[in-house]
Amino acid sequence: MTSEIISKYLSNEASEQEVQALFDWIEASDENKNQFIKAKKIWALTTLSSDLSIETAPVIQMQPKNKIRQYVQYAAIFLVFLGLGTTIFLLNKTTENPKEIVLELGDGRLEYLSGKAQTALLNDKGELIAKKFPNEIVYFGKVADQKVIYNTLSVPYGKRFKLKLSDGTIVSLNSGTSLRYPEQFGLNGNRDVYLTGEAFFEVAKDKMHPFIVHANQADIEVLGTTFNVSAYPENPTVNSTLIEGSIRMSEAANSTNVILLEPNQMATWQNNSKKLAVKEVDPAFYVAWTKGELAFKDTPFSIIAKIIQRTYDVEIINENSDLAKQNFTGTIKISESSVENILDLLKRDTPFNYSIDQKTITITNPR
């Protein structure tokens, strides 16, 4: 295997045939695998040194002079460890949110979707399964039911991503969201996906194969429709808002505990009481995030703070009791607003002070 093909692969410039040939070569022997890891280390360090002047210069300038060398050293180690794969990532995943979009393949391999180039995903036969773009993955085809392989896509705070599943269903994933889904749906049976976080679904119609979203303790079943599901693990509820079509939301452990939704309705599952409720809503409010907006309607600040944390990848500590009791209404364009802009806007209604230390925001009483 030539170093040229390895270099092209690491730079996301290799063709489908070259990628498959590289994978075959890596799996052929431990020696090849070790050689590839060594080449990946060298590539990572070379990339870091060439990018330091552009990407990390502001950070270095903020450090005391005697810490500059230490910072560069740690940055290099981190980048190399990131490239080594599953073990290092899993050891750190429980203590810190990853800052890149991570695709975990069915065989346990991890891919970090940070490259700008288009790449291809092939199966063990060299057949095209999906095309990966900077902000989207598009899947193709179906397989026999016993050959269904599940992938998991995890989107960190501060980012969003889009999937087109192999049946044509389009899924938009919000910040802090994870979706487990079939690489290719089976020829028979249901179309099952598993959601943690928030996603907007545009489900391809297929009456013979119901599409089911498993979200915490609730299941949402559809035949073909558009709807939003919010199921963040820190929230005591699962909300499903229907835009068009029809869906059925039920308790995962008891399918007889069920509610049918019509457009412009939202179903809410209460984790503690095991109850389902439905109400009329303006769906535009609940899908504003898919258009790059944050929409609030008489929303408590505690909820707004969680949304800001996920959207901008920050931590908010609120020590202002008056602010904690306030509700707010409004719409904010994410691309045009910083966290400071939003906080300054909220201060007009309820005075408070805040300080920012790196990514931690502390809100206190006004002086």
Rank of each mutant, 00 (worst) to 15 (best):
residue 99 K to P: 00
residue 52 L to V: 11
residue 84 L to A: 09
residue 40 K to V: 01
residue 83 G to L: 08
residue 76 A to G: 14
residue 56 T to K: 03
residue 77 I to H: 08
residue 75 A to T: 13
residue 55 E to L: 07
residue 65 K to I: 11
residue 55 E to C: 01
residue 52 L to H: 04
residue 75 A to V: 08
residue 99 K to S: 04
residue 69 R to N: 09
residue 68 I to F: 00
residue 51 D to N: 14
residue 53 S to K: 15
residue 81 F to L: 14
residue 92 N to E: 11
residue 62 M to F: 04
residue 76 A to E: 01
residue 78 F to D: 04
residue 52 L to I: 14
residue 49 S to Q: 14
residue 41 K to N: 05
residue 41 K to E: 10
residue 67 K to Y: 08
residue 96 E to F: 07
residue 62 M to R: 14
residue 81 F to Y: 14
residue 98 P to G: 04
residue 52 L to Y: 09
residue 71 Y to G: 03
residue 42 I to K: 05
residue 41 K to V: 02
residue 70 Q to P: 01
residue 46 T to K: 09
residue 72 V to M: 04
residue 66 N to P: 10
residue 92 N to R: 12
residue 96 E to A: 10
residue 90 L to W: 15
residue 39 A to T: 07
residue 64 P to S: 05
residue 93 K to R: 14
residue 82 L to D: 13
residue 80 V to G: 02
residue 98 P to Y: 07
residue 72 V to T: 11
residue 100 E to G: 05
residue 45 L to C: 09
residue 49 S to P: 00
residue 39 A to S: 13
residue 89 F to E: 08
residue 51 D to L: 06
residue 50 S to M: 12
residue 66 N to M: 12
residue 65 K to R: 09
residue 77 I to W: 08
residue 86 T to P: 00
residue 99 K to N: 06
residue 78 F to C: 01
residue 57 A to W: 12
residue 97 N to E: 14
residue 77 I to D: 02
residue 57 A to F: 11
residue 54 I to K: 14
residue 68 I to K: 09
residue 81 F to H: 13
residue 62 M to I: 00
residue 91 L to H: 10
residue 41 K to P: 02
residue 92 N to W: 08
residue 81 F to A: 14
residue 85 G to I: 11
residue 94 T to Y: 13
residue 40 K to E: 09
residue 101 I to F: 04
residue 98 P to H: 06
residue 42 I to G: 00
residue 100 E to S: 09
residue 73 Q to S: 12
residue 62 M to Q: 14
residue 47 T to E: 10
residue 63 Q to H: 06
residue 67 K to I: 00
residue 65 K to Q: 12
residue 69 R to W: 02
residue 72 V to Y: 00
residue 45 L to A: 03
residue 73 Q to V: 10
residue 44 A to Y: 09
residue 57 A to H: 10
residue 95 T to C: 01
residue 57 A to D: 15
residue 50 S to A: 15
residue 69 R to V: 10
residue 48 L to K: 03
residue 47 T to G: 03
residue 83 G to A: 11
residue 65 K to E: 13
residue 76 A to V: 05
residue 42 I to A: 07
residue 72 V to W: 01
residue 39 A to Y: 04
residue 58 P to R: 11
residue 80 V to I: 07
residue 75 A to M: 12
residue 68 I to W: 07
residue 101 I to C: 10
residue 41 K to A: 02
residue 93 K to N: 12
residue 69 R to H: 06
residue 65 K to T: 10
residue 63 Q to P: 01
residue 80 V to K: 00
